[in-house]
Amino acid sequence: MTYDADENGSKQARRLLRLRENDYRFGAGALILRVEHVSVDAPMIDEGEPWYRVRGIEITGSGHSRGPREAWVRARSLPQGLRPDDANGFAGPS
């Protein structure tokens, strides 16, 4: 299953994630990402937790678009609506 953040025009089309360095793989420093896609089919297990591949546009600290970026993001760092929901499968945007 995958989730495209813009598939439902009646809800918020994009999500802005502000991630600390230890909440994403692989890179250095904080990451701001405007989420376009979350893949939940094959999570990576690291540090005993699931991590999901997230694709989006990297945003600079001053708010400018830096370009496309993919990262593995710690599941608990994804906001409600972008992370898998144990009871109901994947939760759509809230």
Score class of each variant (00 low, 15 high):
15 R>D: 13
91 A>R: 04
75 A>S: 10
61 G>T: 12
19 L>D: 06
8 N>V: 10
69 R>K: 11
73 V>N: 06
70 E>P: 02
74 R>F: 05
55 R>N: 13
92 G>K: 09
29 G>L: 00
17 L>Q: 02
5 A>Q: 07
7 E>H: 15
53 R>D: 11
62 S>I: 11
60 T>K: 09
7 E>M: 06
59 I>C: 06
51 W>D: 02
62 S>T: 15
12 Q>M: 13
27 G>R: 03
23 D>K: 06
9 G>N: 11
49 E>P: 03
94 S>N: 04
12 Q>H: 11
18 R>L: 13
17 L>R: 01
16 L>R: 04
7 E>C: 05
40 V>D: 06
52 Y>W: 09
86 D>C: 00
4 D>S: 13
1 M>H: 10
51 W>Q: 05
16 L>G: 09
69 R>Q: 06
32 I>P: 00
84 P>T: 03
78 L>P: 09
88 N>Q: 03
85 D>Q: 04
10 S>E: 15
65 S>T: 12
27 G>W: 02
84 P>M: 01
60 T>N: 08
67 G>D: 06
11 K>M: 07
46 D>H: 12
83 R>H: 05
56 G>I: 13
73 V>M: 04
91 A>E: 08
83 R>A: 15
76 R>A: 15
50 P>T: 04
4 D>A: 12
3 Y>P: 01
34 R>C: 10
3 Y>S: 03
21 E>P: 03
35 V>I: 07
80 Q>F: 02
36 E>T: 07
62 S>D: 15
1 M>C: 11
89 G>F: 01
44 M>S: 07
73 V>C: 00
70 E>Q: 10
86 D>Q: 00
54 V>N: 05
45 I>L: 14
58 E>L: 10
71 A>R: 02
8 N>L: 11
13 A>H: 09
38 V>I: 05
46 D>M: 12
2 T>V: 10
37 H>C: 00
82 L>S: 10
30 A>Y: 05
58 E>H: 01
73 V>G: 01
44 M>N: 01
80 Q>E: 09
